[in-house]
Each structure stands twice: as structure tokens, then as C-alpha cells.
Design a protein around this nucleic acid. Structure first.
Lengths: 105, 105
DNA sequence: GTTTGATACTTCGTGATATGATGTATTACG
DNA sequence: CGTAATACATCATATCACGAAGTATCAAAC
């Protein structure tokens, strides 16, 4: 997909990936891969941003000798997902304008 | 709307505003206002980018003593709008992932 | 008749951001 | 032992939306 188009969807997409159960970087990338191709550097940038804005919390855990950082969605993060549903209406309206379902002007 | 969310939609939105008939800066802003709030500086940045990428052509014209620059969509620009319809499918798939219409994972 | 507001385009600087490249360290497989 | 997969981190860069500020014209208001 066009890089520009998915911007703005990245944050909610990552939040969605951890909403049902805590997850970690590598797993998140795998989970969203069918929908969005994102690199590690991009993901960690996003995770950092979401942490800073209190959308998620981080917890380090050992797993098979390897360090893993599990990300847990906060209430604010869940709210963000809810708000997104509202914003989606505006995006759809915009889509209709672009595709020109009636040029009623 | 969230600034991030509309990114990527901006270009096609501007293209859509000139697709049926040539238009100019101030008019474009008015036309897209119900769907996207964009400032003059933003619009002219976009118009410049679209011109550079051959999505539109520019023509200067006098109108009531004032200069106006009319923008005309090119074939490439029209193609961009067509391609957007395809990309929209991917965006919808992403939306469904985010809102979790069935976590079938 | 001068001030105000709308029209119309331009330029500059800034902060946010996605991403490739690169690096470190461990485990599993052959 | 070497290679690939796992897992996280950092840096440098290019793109980009946008506010701020500027220039200039025209119409309406006072």
C-alpha cells in the first residue's frame, strides 16, 4: 500500500494488535503484516510514541533466555480505538468526495 | 479530523477537487473544507508536489485584475484517483482489523 | 476616501514522522 | 561451527503539514 495512505492508521493498527492480549515487537509485526508492512525501526518508533502518550505500558519479561518487552494497552489506548471508529465516518465521507459519488456541487 | 489520519488522503482530495473542472487555490480550499480543513500553506505545498509529479498542470489567468493560477488534472492525476479506489480496499481491510470484526486469528 | 475584509498567491521555519541502515545478543537448526 | 530467525535499539535522512508573515488587489462600509 502507498506509504502515505497508511500513515495515521499505523498507531491504531499497533494498538489493535495488542488490545486483546499483550504482545511484543516481533509478534506485532507478524500480526499486522497482512494489513500493513512495517519495519522494525518504524514499529519501535510507534511503540515509543504510544508509550509517551500513555496509550500503552511496557513490561520486560524473560522468555527463553531472551529479553522481551510486552506491551499492554491502557484505558487511554482503548479510548483511542473507540475514537477511531468515529473518525472513520469522516474518512468515508472523504472517500465519497474523492470518488465522486455525486458531484452535487 | 486527526492530522495524521488525513495524511495520504490530502493529495487525492485535491486532485478530486479539480477533476471535473479546472480550479484555483482559494476555490479548492472552499470545496474541500467540508471534508478536510487545510490551510493555504498546506494546499500550495500539495499543489506544488502534484505539479512536480506531473499529476496536474498550471495555467495563469487574469480574473478581475487579479492573478489566478488554474490547475488542470493530467492523465497521470486521473490514474492516481483510479488507483486510489483499489487502495481503498486495503484501507477497509485495515479498518476491519483495527475494529476487530472478528479476531479470527 | 480611507479603513476593513475578502480574495489570491508566496516564502520561511519548524516539528513530527516513517524508514533504511546498522548494530548487539541470543537461540535453533543443519 | 555457521547460518537464520528472534528481539530490541539507535542514528541519519527525507518528506511533509502547517503556522506565521508577507504582498497585492478589489469591494463594501463608515
Amino acid at each position: 500500500m502507498d506509504m502515505q495512505l497508511k500513515r495515521g492508521l499505523l498507531d491504531v493498527c499497533v494498538l489493535a494488535a495488542i488490545k486483546s492480549k499483550d504482545s511484543y515487537g516481533y509478534q506485532i509485526i507478524k500480526d499486522v503484516k497482512p494489513y500493513i508492512q512495517l519495519s522494525e525501526s518504524t514499529l519501535y518508533t510507534i511503540l515509543k510514541r504510544l508509550e509517551t502518550s500513555d496509550m500503552l505500558t511496557v513490561r520486560s519479561a524473560e522468555h527463553g533466555g531472551r529479553l522481551r518487552k510486552y506491551y499492554h494497552i491502557t484505558e487511554l489506548g482503548s479510548k483511542r480505538l473507540e475514537d477511531f471508529k468515529t473518525e472513520w465516518q469522516e474518512i468515508v465521507a472523504l472517500y465519497q468526495f474523492v470518488t465522486g459519488e455525486e458531484d452535487k456541487k
